[in-house]
């Protein structure tokens, strides 16, 4: 599982499994920037079903309103920060 660095660009995975997931639907497939690493926390997708839970890296990811809502954004300079577990994040290469 890749470790992400602050300021790296990441994309939230767009998969839509049924069940308890702490990734809001409105952020799936959206691109943001790692704001900070929070350390490792028990995976809620296991906790929710009473299973032993793996410690999983958690990140705060910052999205611009433009990233999420496009031209519908209320104000393009505004941002949304959300906490996303590592297995929901894909690192984007800055290379062309």
């Amino acid at each position: 599982m890749a470790m992400h660095q602050v300021h790296n660009r990441v994309r939230v995975r767009a998969i839509m499994p049924p069940g308890h997931v702490r990734v809001p639907a409105y952020l799936r497939g959206k691109t943001g920037v790692i704001e900070r690493a929070l350390g490792a926390f028990s995976n809620p997708e296991q906790l929710a079903y009473g299973l032993p839970a793996d410690k999983t890296p958690l990140y705060r990811v910052r999205f611009t309103m433009q990233d999420i809502w496009g031209e519908q954004a209320e104000s393009p300079i505004d941002t949304i920060d959300a906490e996303i577990f590592a297995h929901w994040l894909e690192e984007l290469s800055d290379a062309p």
């Binding site: 702490r22 990734v23 809001p24 929070l38 926390f41 809620p44 958690l58 104000s75 300079i77 505004d78 941002t79 949304i80 920060d81 959300a82 906490e83 996303i84 577990f85």
Partner: peptide, 9 residues
């Protein structure tokens, strides 16, 4: 405006 969505811990 920075919105913070408390999605996890």
């Amino acid at each position: 405006l920075r919105v913070h969505d408390s999605t996890a811990d």
